[in-house]
């Protein structure tokens, strides 16, 4: 399914140049230019530079390895020292550098043990007795991944965990791997918005439909790259053009471009718009810039997810 996009002579990765210019002395990146380094921005920038063949990726991967906790997880920022959802992105990035290495595989094992929580016993009891109180229509028995340990599973952290673990299939021998990925697939199907696409993870509240977002839709589509037969995948891909009619943020264009490329959908128009936006990029979020660098790569499946 992978396609090669014919770029029109524009330097395909101005975003990579920006990332290199913004790299900190310690090898990492903060959320915004000049901020102290944190895991999410550094993992995504490391991934983007690695895929671009830039040597600066090496220092970024060194930063990631140094920031890893003994548990195998990564903190949001080194000063916090508590395991965080960003572990997925660090593992995903390292899966391109050294997929069988201890850092990536220990991170993957932490991810396999990390589970979102369901409803508490008394809430479940309440819903049996007072079903009218159930304000959202979710299958709370499905376990994905939470933003914060011990809380509920949501679309974005679940999607990131799945792309990391799907990338490491073959490198992590753990009986839970396929079971958790399968349940993650089912959770994303459960959380899809009624008209297609995903938001943060609530399709309906109090009976009223909520709308999808481009970035979370794209994240879920990347996580379901190997599950194209599932109806929410086609529905999600179908609503992206309409969402991008009213949203041309760098983050939205980049992630949707990557999702299109991964699913073999023509991404030319999205990438052309993104090129224009990157040319005027000044001081936005580093993570958006990193996703843009990946989206502007000429390989449509630059994230290596199409074959699971």
């Amino acid at each position: 399914m992978a396609q090669t996009l014919e770029f029109r002579g524009i330097m395909p990765n101005l975003a990579v140049s920006h990332l290199i210019a913004l790299q900190g002395q310690d090898g990492g990146w903060g959320p915004y230019p000049g901020d102290p380094s944190r895991t999410e921005a550094t993992a995504l920038a490391a991934l983007a530079l690695q895929r671009a063949g830039e040597p600066a990726a090496g220092r970024a991967f060194d930063w990631l390895r140094a920031a890893q906790l003994d548990s195998g997880a990564w903190p949001i920022a080194p000063v916090l020292a508590e395991p965080g959802w960003v572990t997925s992105l660090a593992v995903f990035a390292l899966s391109f550098d050294e997929p069988a290495g201890r850092s990536a595989t220990n991170g993957a094992r932490w991810l396999l043990a990390e589970e979102g929580s369901g409803a508490t016993w008394w809430v479940n009891l309440l819903f049996r007795l007072f079903p009218q109180r159930k304000a959202v229509e979710l299958d709370t028995d499905l376990t994905g991944w939470p933003w914060a340990t011990g809380t509920f599973s949501w679309v974005e952290p679940t999607s990131y965990a799945m792309i990391a673990l799907k990338r490491l299939r073959g490198h992590v021998r753990d009986a839970r791997l396929e079971e958790r990925l399968d349940e993650g697939d089912r959770l994303l199907v459960d959380r899809a918005c009624v008209g297609g696409g995903w938001n943060y993870g609530n399709p309906r509240v109090l009976g009223e439909e909520l709308w999808p977002y481009p970035d979370t839709t794209a994240a879920a589509l990347l996580a379901l790259a190997d599950r194209g037969e599932l109806p929410p995948v086609a529905a999600g891909l179908g609503v992206v053009p309409a969402m991008l009619e009213e949203n041309e943020s760098i983050l939205a264009l980049s992630l949707c471009g990557l999702a299109f490329g991964t699913h073999g959908v023509d991404r030319t128009g999205v990438i052309e718009r993104l090129e224009g936006r990157i040319e005027e990029w000044s001081s936005g979020e580093v993570r958006a810039l990193a996703w843009a660098a990946l989206a502007l790569d000429e390989r449509s499946d630059v994230l290596g997810l199409s074959n699971g």
Binding site: R38, I76, P146, W147, A148, W154, E156
Partner: peptide
Amino acid sequence: PSAIYGWPKNVLHW
């Protein structure tokens, strides 16, 4: 900060 507590401020709702 949602980077720590999640979107939509998940820890607080929990």
